[in-house]
């Protein structure tokens, strides 16, 4: 620890120590919270699929949702939620939940696609509900209309998810997640199942064709290059204000200091 005492009096020592401590804390937390699951390889046969789903469910889900999907004190009943809901919740990594925070966050999925399909098949086999969607079935690239999708998005989605799908705050710490990088089928499934705080958008209110348009608009927004330079998060004027107070005025004050400093 000799070098520490050497630099202890430097004015950068405090901030540097703080940064180092935060880094160590952050990395150790993320290592600690990552959990591993044994992979299963389900087959395609419908009944075995359901059986495998049942097994995965019993192992990974039943402790909260109950052995018969009946739900419990901390988790809702899954009777009738349908394969779409399971595919969304598990496929986006929201389920199983890592911790009991206000809402399940998107993360790397813990079950692979086959396992998710098995789980979905099992849950759907007990009570009917909306079927899972496959990306191939969504012809949003061909049949969607981005402009119409934008209108629908601003009427139905942007109040929570922000004008560019970046997400936003709800009450009591809940939030509408960012829509960037979400698979088309998951967007579709979210619209028809209404996961967590999100309401359901029924097919008669927003038709399947309109849903495809919404997806097309979201995808267009996601892939839209930065037409005017760094996007600053696409969250509106707050970051712009921050930039003008930080880089903006600081740089100009720096120049002013240079201008008025006496030349050597």
């Amino acid at each position: 620890m000799n070098f520490i005492s050497r630099y202890r009096r430097s004015k950068f020592f405090g901030p540097a120590l703080l940064a180092a401590a935060l880094f160590v804390l952050g990395t150790s937390y993320s290592v600690a919270s990552a959990t591993t699951f044994k992979a299963v390889t389900p087959s395609n046969d419908k009944t075995t699929l359901i059986a495998e789903g049942k097994e995965i469910f019993a192992r990974g889900c039943s402790s909260c949702h109950g052995l018969n999907l009946e739900g419990g004190a901390i988790a809702p009943s899954l009777i009738g939620v349908g394969a779409a809901s399971v595919d969304f919740q598990v496929g986006t990594g929201r389920m199983p939940m890592a911790d009991m925070s206000v809402q399940a966050a998107r993360k790397d999925p813990i079950y692979n696609e086959a396992e998710t399909a098995a789980l979905a098949a099992y849950v759907a086999s007990l009570a009917p509900g909306p079927a899972a969607i496959r990306n191939e079935d969504l012809a949003w690239e061909r049949s969607g209309d981005a402009a119409e999708g934008g209108q629908l998005f601003r009427s139905n989605c942007s109040m929570c998810h922000n004008f560019a799908g970046q997400g936003g705050a709800l009450s009591q710490g809940k939030y509408a997640p960012s829509l960037m990088g979400v698979e088309a089928k998951h967007i579709y499934e979210a619209l028809i199942t209404g996961p967590q705080s999100m309401p359901v958008f029924s097919d008669k209110i927003i038709t399947p064709a309109e849903k495809l348009s919404i997806i097309k608009w979201i995808k267009a927004a996601e892939s839209e290059p930065n037409l005017g330079g760094a996007s600053l998060g696409r969250t509106g004027p707050v970051t712009e204000g921050l930039l003008s107070w930080s880089l903006g005025i600081m740089a100009l004050i720096g120049v002013a200091v240079w201008i008025t400093a006496k030349a050597k």
């Binding site: 119409e148 209108q151 629908l152 009427s155 139905n156 209404g194 309401p199 359901v200 958008f201 029924s202 008669k204 209110i205 927003i206 038709t207 309109e210």
Partner: peptide, 21 residues
């Protein structure tokens, strides 16, 4: 009627948990 779309709405069009503008 729905906004946008201008389609009239029947109660059966809305599931529990659904919203419509």
């Amino acid at each position: 009627v729905t906004d946008p779309g201008d389609r009239p709405i029947k109660p059966s069009d809305l599931e529990i948990g659904a919203v419509a503008q």
